[in-house]
Design a protein around this nucleic acid. Structure first.
Lengths: 273, 273
DNA sequence: TTGTACGCGTTATCAT
DNA sequence: ATGATAACGCGTACAA
């Protein structure tokens, strides 16, 4: 009734605890006979390894922290989905935190994750922190100094893309609380007619689809006919996750910066930047 | 340089490990003199309690599992935000998983969380599982049998609300992959003109705002003028979290079912159901 | 190939 | 009010 531990399995299989540990994680030094014995004993008792104890002993929690600046953003779920997809393939889990600087400061969240012994962090928030330890930390979207790796927008590509959509028109950048492409502000200019870029917010009323560029998931622009500048949250999450995983597993030296190229959708069709 | 442990603090403060533990968590039996000694020693060394070791020893991980059926849904972030807000107030963290039945089965996800020794689970997915243990489990939105508590839609109120919006018109329910209000299907009927309800999907092209009821976050319907049926993901998450917290802390007996009343927004204004 | 014994960092149970 | 010591469940040198 109570929890089945390794000792229980050891008793059942008439071997030592250590043997159970080794057999279960496929240590090649264990004879296939005992391995079989152990496995069936484990099955019989319904044994499951306690990840907490495992973490304490091995110093590896297989836990990653994911920090978002604004969980309420419509794309944050997609981002997390991308992260989760990659992590689960490596038998890792994620602790999700929100660092909006209001309810939770960057440093508070960072330390909380460190206390949990996460093996790495994916940081997608403007809130700052000081990476006191040399914890594998991948910054996505924003730019942080205290990180091991950065996944950033290919700003040049994005700007070229927007300008080609705008043509001769004026460019107006309208930002909400948590803009995705704040650097587009610098693209503002005068001209004939205007392309309005809504980032982190929505037009108050229906406008001519030709004149509106939404910064969000393309699905939301579909029915309206608005053009859409999509940063590919799902993919960004996946890339960020892949980076932490590599850092955690210490796979070779890799570039400090990885670029992601957001794309523009017009009428459901993706145009290359 | 290496990790500061409790023993280090004990040495520094010239007391026993146990005393450090007690002093740090405010045990009233500790003299204010030693408490002061311990605190300053801890500060000086930059000590932080190791949550993993704490979990192993105390059998309490202060970890909650949150399972979503479709992380990519635009409201899932808001849901998580609601959960996080409540949990953080109780110094708890959440592990987020996705159980879409495709990449991850309900049972697999459930067991994974159990292995992590989560103290409770918030389940918002259609995927099924068998709650082998008597783990505090709050089901939100959907209806599951193996749960300690359910947070469900006030279906009656929702239906009344939709019908009052529809008036004499026909009602057409159009569902995507992960509908929020599947039970609205039963409301379909013929009539003069039609109110189309889009759940988990979007109209392919712009329709008369009067005839469209979107099931999503109201912000997305704002600029378009579509009406919107909102289930209040943020609040739902908060309620779910409050329930698990109470269950975990074993606060009295409470109703097995809690109802949430989604609301309809028309032109940014909320109308009561 | 397998067993012994200790360590991981903290809390809980006895003592004192 | 505090100290000594044993758990908690697992990994791993080291020994056999």
């Amino acid at each position: 009734m109570s929890k089945v531990t390794m000792s229980d399995v050891a008793d059942e299989a008439q071997v030592n605890k250590a043997t159970v540990s080794r057999a279960l994680k496929g240590d090649p030094r264990i004879s296939s006979a005992t391995r079989e014995k152990v496995w069936s004993a484990a099955k019989k008792l319904g044994y499951r390894v306690d990840t907490v104890a495992q973490g304490l002993s091995s110093k590896k929690t297989s836990l990653v922290g994911v920090v978002l600046g604004d969980l309420k953003a419509s794309w944050s779920g997609a981002f997390l989905s991308g992260v989760e997809r990659v992590l689960s393939r490596h038998r890792m889990d994620m602790i999700v935190k929100e660092a909006d600087g209001l309810h939770a400061s960057g440093d508070a969240v960072f330390h909380r994750l460190v206390d949990r012994n996460v093996e790495g962090i994916i940081w997608n928030a403007r809130a700052t922190f000081s990476n006191v330890l040399e914890l594998p930390l991948v910054s996505v979207g924003d730019e942080h100094s205290d990180c091991s790796m950065r996944v950033v927008h290919d700003k040049g590509a994005v700007c070229r893309c927007v300008l080609s959509v705008a043509g001769e028109r004026a460019v107006r950048y309208i930002s909400g609380d948590n803009p995705l492409f704040p650097y587009l502000f610098e693209l503002q200019r005068e001209g004939n007619g205007a392309l309005s870029i809504y980032d982190g917010t929505m037009p108050a009323s229906l406008l001519d689809p030709e004149d509106v560029l939404l910064c969000c998931d393309p699905v939301w622009s579909k029915g309206i006919g608005y053009m859409c500048l999509d940063w590919g949250a799902f993919d960004a999450g996946g890339i960020g996750a892949r980076c932490v995983v590599n850092l955690v597993k210490g796979k070779g030296v890799r570039p400090k910066e990885v670029f992601i190229a957001p794309s523009v959708y017009i009428g459901g069709e993706r145009i290359t930047c």
